[in-house]
C-alpha cells in the first residue's frame, strides 16, 4: 500500500485540517506517513499545498516526486491545476469547482474547468454548496475529504474516528457536523464513480 496525495488550496481555506485527519487515520492503521506543509508568508492568502505520503513501507522523501502523485485534492480549482506536473497519468484530481478569487487577474472559470477535464480521471464538485446544505460553510474541507475517500485505501470508520479525535475539544455538535459533511462528500464522489 502506497499513496501520494497533494492537497492544495488558498491560505486560510483549511487544507491542513484535511491533512491532519488523514494523517491521524494513517497512523492508527500503523502505516508510515510523511506530511510536508506550508507555514509562514503564503498562509496570508497565497497558494498553499501539503504533500501527504502514506505507505506500509518506510518513506524517504517528504516531498512527492514529479508525476508520482496518486491524487490531487484541492479546495480551489485553479490551485488543483498548479500541481498538474505532480500527478500520475492514471492519478485522480478531486477538486472543488468554486473559485477563490483574491487576485485581480483570476482566469475565466470555464477555461479552468476545460483544463481540469483534459485530465481523464477527475471529479469536480461544488464543495461550498454541499457544505452549506450540510449545515455550515466551514465544513467544506470535510466534504472534500469525503469525496476523496474512495481513493484513500483507509477504512471510513478510521477517518471518522480521526475527525472525532481532532475536533474533540470543539464538542459533540461540531464532530457530528463534520462527519455529516464527510459522508455527504463521500456519497457524491461514489455516485460519480459508479456512473
Amino acid at each position: 500500500m502506497k499513496i501520494d496525495i497533494i492537497l492544495s488550496g488558498v491560505g486560510g481555506q483549511g487544507i491542513l485540517s484535511i491533512a491532519a485527519v488523514i494523517g491521524q487515520a494513517a497512523l492508527e492503521n500503523k502505516h508510515y506517513m510523511k506530511q510536508s506543509e506550508v507555514h509562514g508568508m503564503s498562509q496570508r492568502g497565497g497558494d498553499v499545498q501539503a504533500n501527504l505520503r502514506i505507505s506500509d513501507k518506510p518513506i524517504f522523501s517528504d516531498l512527492i516526486p514529479l508525476q508520482q502523485a496518486d491524487l490531487i485534492l484541492s479546495l480551489e480549482p485553479m490551485e488543483a491545476l498548479r500541481y498538474m506536473p505532480y500527478v500520475k497519468e492514471a492519478g485522480w484530481i478531486v477538486t472543488n469547482e468554486t473559485p477563490f478569487k483574491n487576485i485581480s487577474n483570476y482566469p475565466n472559470e470555464a477555461d479552468i474547468e476545460d483544463e481540469i477535464k483534459k485530465h481523464k480521471n477527475h471529479i469536480l464538485i461544488n464543495i461550498d454548496e454541499i457544505a452549506k446544505e450540510v449545515g455550515s460553510a466551514r465544513t467544506a474541507n470535510m466534504v472534500l475529504l469525503g469525496a476523496a475517500l474512495p481513493f484513500l485505501s483507509l477504512p471510513e470508520e478510521d477517518i471518522e474516528d480521526a475527525i472525532s479525535a481532532i475536533f474533540e475539544k470543539k464538542g459533540e455538535e461540531i464532530i457530528k457536523l463534520n462527519i455529516k459533511a464527510l459522508r455527504a462528500g463521500s456519497e457524491i464522489s461514489r455516485n460519480i464513480l459508479n456512473k
Partner: peptide, 13 residues
Amino acid sequence: ITIPEVVKMRPPS
C-alpha cells in the same frame, strides 16, 4: 509536464 498556462500567480496578501 508543466503548469497549465491558465494558472496565475497567487502571491500572499
